[in-house]
Design a binder for these strands. Sequence first.
DNA 1: AAACTCCCCAACCGCTTTCAT
DNA 2: TATGAAAGCGGTTGGGGAGTT
Length: 194
Amino acid sequence: MGRSPCCEKEHTNKGAWTKEEDERLINHIKLHGEGCWRSLPKAAGLFRCGKSCRLRWINYLRPDLKRGNFSQEEDELIINLHGLLGNKWSLIAGRLAGRTDNEIKNYWNTHIKRKLISRGIDPQTHRHLNNQNPNIVAMQLQTLDHGFKEEEHNYSNCSTTATATATAVTVTQDFSHPPQINLELSIRPPHHLM
DNA sequence: AAACTCCCCAACCGCTTTCAT
DNA sequence: TATGAAAGCGGTTGGGGAGTT
């Protein structure tokens, strides 16, 4: 029944990766590709569980990672996507080339949350803190320049597609701040979930 | 210079989904 | 179809560096 166990937990290292472990993992993946994480540690001569190897590769060692500071454009894109998708970090990461779900999650928790609160926006609901309305899915945008000019957008990865339809757009301005765009959205789940 | 606090982020934990048997 | 392990994901933690007292 089922598959065989993934690794012997009593013989696995934990904690920070050493340079030598990184090199072993990189060399192995260069030669054999990502393939099966279960068998990778043994094949690469690593005393780590497959799960740990996968995480290390995806979040730190992959050659296509961008790393470094997030740009203003990336900030706004993350905020907009979070307004649509919530804490679906892997879906959000899929829209930002060279960024990982872990990196975006950390960045959200350490920077963007504070940024939104300073703008008077609830980071979880994306609603104004002084204007809560539980019946509306609303997204606050700083400018009109982030691609929401059409009525309908699809957000998808390899296995799911959700559709967001704009039902109302309002603009408010108090002249001491940039214009505030509020976009109300109706989210339709993927067909196979309906 | 030492002690303390705060912040960042890599890595772990535990849950859910996917898939092999 | 049922079962259970692997893979994937989001939440959380803890080590270490930076800043402050």
